[in-house]
């Protein structure tokens, strides 16, 4: 009798069920998973790309000794590549 009374008093616990559903399914499961995914997959992918390019940066930086000959050599390679492209384009 007492327990029936309690069930009735709480309106058959329907609010409890709905609350449980929204809190655990929508909020804790769905939203939290999406949030975790956003931080650990999508944003992480972006950050990883940035980090990789930064470390590549550092590596490349070490090759740059600031000598005139290096720079002119690089320029020469560039010119050769450009000429090559123009040649191929011209033939095609």
């Amino acid at each position: 009798m007492r327990s029936l009374h309690t069930v009735l008093f709480n309106g058959y616990y329907i609010e409890f069920f709905i609350h449980y559903f929204t809190k655990n399914i929508i909020f804790n499961s769905l939203s939290r998973t999406i949030n975790w995914m956003d931080i650990h997959i999508i944003d992480a992918a972006v950050n990883a790309t940035v980090n990789i390019s930064f470390s590549l940066n550092k590596l490349l930086r070490k090759t740059d000794r600031g000598l005139m000959s290096d720079n002119s050599g690089a320029m020469l390679i560039g010119v050769v590549i450009l000429l090559f492209i123009i040649l191929i384009e011209g033939i095609a």
Partner: peptide
């Protein structure tokens, strides 16, 4: 049914009326 049975046991005046 839910409303009528729950209204039977409420202690607050307004809750009875709500059910």
């Amino acid at each position: 049914f839910i409303g009528a049975t729950s209204a039977l046991v409420q202690t607050e005046l307004k809750k009875v009326l709500a059910y």
